[in-house]
Design a protein around this nucleic acid. Structure first.
Lengths: 346, 346
DNA sequence: GTGAAAGCGCTAACAT
DNA sequence: ATGTTAGCGCTTTCAC
C-alpha cells in the first residue's frame, strides 16, 4: 500500500545534488551555497522527506531519547507490576516529574521512554536498554532507599541522573531539595502563628527526605525552646496521614499545630481533624509539604512547603543531557531551596 | 575511557563462526546446531555483547517502541505545556492507562515514549516522530472532542489506536466502554435501593462519554417511571463535582440519590454533602464512575461503575501491535462492559 | 563549496 | 546447517 518513505538519495536526485549536500542542509551545517540550500529545501518539501532515525543513530551513536525510570527495590510478580505503575502515578509527584522532564526534553527534541523497574529482571532490562543504545541515558526516580539500580548504572558507566540523593553513595549526579530547611520553615511558621504544642506526621524514616524534614522541624523547634515534638510516622499516602493524625490526637489531645511531611498526608490529617470537629487552622494548624495539586484540593487549602519538582526534574534532564554530550564529566549535585506557601490551613 | 561495545563481528570471531550464525542464535532462529549455539552463547557472555538497536531497526524497519500520546485540542504556550502534563497526571485515569499499556508492552519487549500534543506544533512533532520511524505507531488518548490528531494520523496512514471512539469518525481502531450501560447500572442501583428522586452530575456534554453515561442513566430511569432527573454538568474534576452538587441541592433540596459521571466528581459531591450535614448513603446515595483510586480514597468509599481502564489500555496496545505487524489491516473497535462495584456510598 | 566513497552494526537472501 | 554478501539510510572524512 504505502510506498517507501523518501530517502536522502531521493531528495538528492530531486534537487540535482549529492546526498552529502542534502545531509548538510538537513543538519544545518554551514558551507552550503544559499542558492543550493534553497533548492534542496524545496526538494525536501516536495518529497516530504524525513530523516530515518535508525540510520542516523547508527552513525551518530545517539538515540536522542532518554529513559525515565521509576524504580523500586522489590521483586514483584507481573500483577504487582501493573499495580506499581498505577500506584506510582496516584501520587501527584510523578506527574510533576514527568511534566518537568518533558519541559526540558521537548525543546531539545528529545523524548522520554517510560520504564518501571521493580524487579531484578526489570533492572537488567533497563541496563540492556541503555547498552543497546535505545536511550542515551537514564533519569531515575527511586521509590525505595534500597534501590540497587543507581549502583548498577554507575557500575556500568551508563549516563544517569537521580532525583534525590541515593541512600548509599554512588558516583552519579542528582538533584535534590534542602529538606531540612523545609522542615525548619514549617516549624517557624507554626511557631510564628502561636502554636504551643506542635507535632508532626513525618515521612518514612528509612527515606532521607523523611528523616531530614523531621530533623529540620525538630531542630528549629528546639532552637525556639521546644525540646520535644510528638511525631507519628506515615507512608506519604493520604490514608497513612489520616491514621497518623488519629494516633497523634489520641496521645496528645492538646496538639494545636501539625507539620505533615507531604501534602497527601496533610490532606488525610485535615480530613480526620474535621471529622473530630477540630477547626483548621483555629484549633489545629496544618502545614504540608510539596505544594502539589493536593494542596489546593485540600479542605482547607494547604499552607505548605513548596518543593519545585518541575524545575528539579527539568534540571535533572539538563544534567543528563550534559553528561551524554560529555560537556560534563564529573557527577554533580544540585540542591534546590524550599519555600513556604501560605494558604488557609496555617 | 570506555572502549567500543562489542559487535556481532566480535562475537563471531570469538566463537569462530560467521556473523550470520551469531545473528541467528541471537534472534532465536532455528536451523542452528545446538553445539554451535552453545559456543556462540558463551562467546556472547564472554564479550558482553548486546545488539545495537539502531542497526537492527535500520534493516527490520521496526523501532519496537510506540508513542503514548496524550492529546488535547488547544494551542498552548510553553508554560501551558508543563501545566498540561501535570494536570493530565493529576487524574488517576492516566496512571491506569500507562499501567495497562506497559503491562502489554513489557512482555513484548516494547516500550512507550511519552508525548503530549497540545498544539499544532506538537501534533506535527508526533507525526514526524512516527515518520522518522522512531516509534512504530501511536496510542492516543484524546482529552478533547475536537482533537485533530486522530484524523492527521489516519490521513498519514500511520498505525494508531485510540482510547475511546473519536467524536468525528476516523478510520482507526479504538477501545471503548459501553458508557450507556454504565449509566443504566447506576440508575438501576439507585432505584433498587429505594431512591425516589435521583439526580446526576453529568460529564461535559461535548464528550461522548459524558453524553452516553447521562443518556443511559436517564433511559433506565424512564423505563422505571421516572420521566425526569435533574442534571448538573461537571468537568470531570473534583471541584466541578462539588459545585455541581451545590447547584443540584439548591434547585432540588429533596434529592436522595446522585449519579456522578466519574469518581472525582463523586468525591467532590460527597464532600459537599457532608459539609451540608447529609449522611451518605442514608440521606443521599452516591454512585460514581470509573472505580479509580479516588473511589476508595473517598469518604465514604464509593459505590461506582467500574471502567476496566488497565485492561482497555492493554488491549489498545495489543491492537496497535497487530496493526504494526500487519496481522490486522482493517480498523476495529473493542467495547468493554462496565460493572457495578458496591461499596459504602450507595 | 560540493561530491565520492567508506563505513556504522545488523538482517536476510542466496549459495554452498 | 553455515557462510557470503548485499544492502538498510545516514554522516563524515577526504579529495577536488
Amino acid at each position: 500500500m504505502s510506498r517507501q518513505p523518501p530517502t536522502l538519495e531521493d531528495v538528492a536526485r530531486e534537487a540535482g545534488v549529492s546526498r552529502a549536500t542534502v545531509s548538510r542542509v538537513v543538519n544545518g551545517v554551514r558551507n552550503v551555497d544559499p542558492a543550493i540550500q534553497e533548492v534542496v529545501r524545496q526538494a525536501i518539501d516536495r518529497t516530504g522527506y524525513t530523516p530515518n532515525r535508525a540510520a542516523r543513530s547508527l552513525v551518530t551513536r545517539r538515540a536522542e531519547t532518554v529513559a525515565l525510570v521509576v524504580s523500586g527495590a522489590g521483586d514483584l510478580s507481573e500483577d504487582g507490576q501493573i499495580d506499581f505503575a498505577a500506584r506510582v502515578f496516584a501520587d501527584p509527584f510523578f506527574g510533576r516529574v514527568v511534566a518537568g522532564v518533558v519541559s526540558y526534553l521537548r525543546p531539545h527534541s528529545m523524548h522520554p521512554v517510560l520504564m518501571f523497574a521493580e524487579s531484578a529482571k526489570d533492572r537488567h532490562e533497563v541496563l540492556s536498554y541503555l547498552r543497546q543504545g535505545r536511550a542515551d541515558g537514564a533519569l531515575v526516580v527511586s521509590t525505595h532507599p534500597d534501590d540497587p539500580l543507581p549502583a548498577l548504572l554507575a557500575g556500568a558507566h551508563l549516563p544517569a541522573v537521580l532525583f534525590a540523593r541515593p541512600a548509599r553513595a554512588v558516583p552519579l549526579s542528582y538533584v535534590d531539595l534542602a529538606h531540612r530547611d523545609g522542615g525548619r520553615l514549617a516549624a517557624e511558621h507554626l511557631l510564628a502563628r502561636g502554636c504551643r504544642t506542635p507535632a508532626t506526621i513525618c515521612g518514612p524514616l528509612d527515606v532521607a527526605a523523611g528523616q531530614e524534614r523531621l530533623a529540620g522541624f525538630r531542630d528549629a523547634l528546639a532552637r525556639h525552646g521546644h525540646p520535644y515534638a510528638p511525631a507519628a510516622e506515615g507512608g506519604f499516602t493520604r490514608d497513612s496521614g489520616l491514621t497518623a493524625m488519629a494516633r497523634l490526637l489520641a496521645d496528645h489531645p492538646d496538639i494545636d499545630g501539625v507539620f505533615a511531611a507531604n501534602d497527601l498526608m496533610a490532606q488525610g490529617a485535615c480530613q480526620l481533624l474535621r471529622e473530630r470537629g477540630k477547626r483548621i487552622p483555629e484549633d489545629v494548624a496544618v502545614v504540608g509539604f510539596d505544594d502539589s495539586s493536593a494542596a489546593v484540593t485540600c479542605q482547607p487549602r494547604l499552607t505548605t512547603v513548596r518543593q519545585p519538582v518541575e524545575a528539579m526534574a527539568a534540571r535533572m534532564a539538563g544534567l543528563l543531557d550534559e553528561h551524554v554530550r560529555q560537556v560534563r564529566r564529573e557527577p554533580t549535585s544540585v540542591v534546590f531551596d524550599p519555600e513556604l506557601v501560605i494558604r488557609d490551613s496555617a
